[in-house]
Design a binder for these strands. Sequence first.
DNA 1: GGGTCCGGTTGATCCAGATCAGGGCGGGTC
DNA 2: GACCCGCCCTGATCTGGATCAACCGGACCC
Lengths: 254, 254
Amino acid sequence: MTFSVAATTTAAVAPPPMPAPQTRGVETVTGRCAGCSARSKGLCGALTAGDLPNLSTTSRPLDLLSATPVVMEGEEAGAVFTVMSGMLKLYKTLPDGRQQITGFATAGDVIGLAVGTGYAYTAETVTASTVCRMPRTALRRLMERHPAVQGRLLAMTSVELSAAQDQILLLGCKTAVERVSSFLLALSRRSRPLADGTPSVFLPMPKVDIGAYLGLRPETLSRVLRKLEGAGAITRLTNDRIRIENPAALEAAA
Amino acid sequence: MTFSVAATTTAAVAPPPMPAPQTRGVETVTGRCAGCSARSKGLCGALTAGDLPNLSTTSRPLDLLSATPVVMEGEEAGAVFTVMSGMLKLYKTLPDGRQQITGFATAGDVIGLAVGTGYAYTAETVTASTVCRMPRTALRRLMERHPAVQGRLLAMTSVELSAAQDQILLLGCKTAVERVSSFLLALSRRSRPLADGTPSVFLPMPKVDIGAYLGLRPETLSRVLRKLEGAGAITRLTNDRIRIENPAALEAAA
DNA sequence: GGGTCCGGTTGATCCAGATCAGGGCGGGTC
DNA sequence: GACCCGCCCTGATCTGGATCAACCGGACCC
């Protein structure tokens, strides 16, 4: 689960990057995947340029507003999606409505991989995002033809599993301060520092979502952030950006 | 993470099933893997009988007493292990000693798959167990030669990931009663019912380990079990066996 | 402008589960 | 037999974070 965020908060959707899905010859179609900014990070990084035209015929980029559902827990898993830009939240819901966010997906992440026939979680955009849709059958054929794709998928799933186990440790053992500190540190490792070189994190999602990820109420999250700020570990620049003043202090708290 | 337990609690180790690791010809070596009870469930189920002799030269079964560490978090991941019988606990440790059990491994489960170079968790037997050791390099060669093995590994990792996300939901949202009920139901689905047909679960691990898996103290676990018994949902037959009297009541509580 | 809504923050209070403390029991050893 | 030790259970008390309630400020709409 990566966190290298680079998205607008609640902006309108940019116009589609391609003229239209009309046939314009293989050259143009190849260009769509060849120019994909998420390709090196995502599933398709395992393919060579020569394979891309074929890929372009089965995959389609989609531009989505914020708060748009992409896959729904339990629904038949007909396709997988690669995030090209923006951010999504993945969550599971209990019958009585309680929700647990299991992760946030950003550029390069693949969502919608299912064990059985149904999606294991719901995925919904938190900012305007672009995702690339690939039918499940196309993915299966791609894996059969290119074992490297399967290897890539295995590597990505293994990383996800490891992240999930870290989250189990966080939810099972850690205190509120430790959870927030761990979260901020994990984010800061994946985001670029500010112009002056100090590390910072961008939090485009609402506080209630961060809480639902960390197993905390938004009130508790707010109090912990105040405490960390009072201790000189962080500074809240705006509502959605925090500067890490003292990584060592956060490390000690996590 | 499967739970179909069938193991002695703290018994002595059975004598090695094979005469000795001396060379006795391909026939016998083939026999070792061909007769492996965990083969269909484990990684090697993706192989045909003809591939087994080669497998036997790189893999070795190991008989282990209870409370024996198999892999240690952070150590270099030189091999993977398939559980043939018994039960292991997998856990992560915080610097101050707090431990979170991320899962229990039983026959067919593969442990020790690592993303980077180091194991992500510690694995330790909770009952006397038999595991099959395969060097990492041998696994890599096996995957290169047999894409089906890689597919199997991907499927197994995906199931693990899904189970980990369920555990995140449990730890992030559920109450103590809900956690224990979910746990008992998950176990009962994977174990055989008693002779009279009522479902039951076998809990060879100490209560403190179940607590460490569910994010609860053993005192709380004890109180919850008493409560469930008082409500007529379960009966404690012995210290390590519980009969599910009313699956619907557990379902409602979970 | 004024109104409403929503996300965030802060304060007061509550409670589920942790912690602390004591006791029972079965297995192992001498 | 007596003793010890580990595991489990139970009761009393404590507390971290949830819950309840109120307020603030910015975005949006009329």
